[in-house]
Design a binder for these strands. Structure first.
Lengths: 108, 108
DNA sequence: GTCTCCGCTACTTTTTATGTAGCAGTCAAG
DNA sequence: CTTGACTGCTACATAAAAAGTAGCGGAGAC
């Protein structure tokens, strides 16, 4: 479909410590949100964009490319984008974040 | 000490959903890393900067300001910056991320 | 044919982060 | 009282990333 531009290696990748790579990726704008919106059901590119406050397609595509390279997200023809097995394991961490947020900021 | 510039309200704050606020904050570059480096012991501004690959002081200060406003981080004279009670609860989530990263990317 | 959806790419403008210098304050030693 | 070595920052110019908008080419329904 598209060109095969490969996204840049993330900053933390030079340290050899997996957590640094992960923190770098999740620290990019929209990455966490994308994973969050993909919990549950798969979404098409456009549907995902809509859920993410109409994030620009440039950025969305860039993030999805990275997430696919890291095997956190997959694309299936017909259904669209969905979390991979590994991605679903991260999902539970996101749910923990949600729990935390509700507990501490419920009143905002 | 400094000026009293107040950091902008985060994007997700308009939705009223705490998780959106949290995802926005954690999705800003360096925020996750800062929290990660503050696990365990408190660090001075400069020590923290060093641990975060010499992130520019501008950004570090900005993030710390936000994190303090949200009561995730506190500053104590003498010791420096440290996680608040609430921050320490998030810490366990970060440890989960670490666990995940080690499991899935140990071979990188 | 046309209507509508799809995944994107291209491009310009705006926002955000980087990188470097350096100030003012505190403490300790000489 | 001066010097040196810390501290938490702020200022400012530059580079990188994201936002915003338009639109292409393909697929399927009618």
């Amino acid at each position: 479909m598209g060109k095969k531009t490969v996204s840049q290696p993330v900053r933390g990748s030079t340290t050899g410590r997996p957590i640094m790579v992960l923190l770098d990726i999740l620290g990019q704008r929209w990455t966490l949100r994308i994973l969050w919106e993909l919990r549950g059901e798969p979404l098409s590119f456009r549907a995902l964009r809509q859920r993410c406050d109409q994030v620009s397609p440039t950025v969305l595509n860039d993030r999805l490319k990275t997430l696919r390279e890291l095997d956190l997200v997959q694309r299936e023809d017909g259904t669209g984008y969905r979390l991979s097995q590994a991605g679903e394991e991260l999902e539970s961490t996101l749910l923990a974040l949600n729990h935390w947020a509700e507990k501490h900021w419920a009143g905002r």
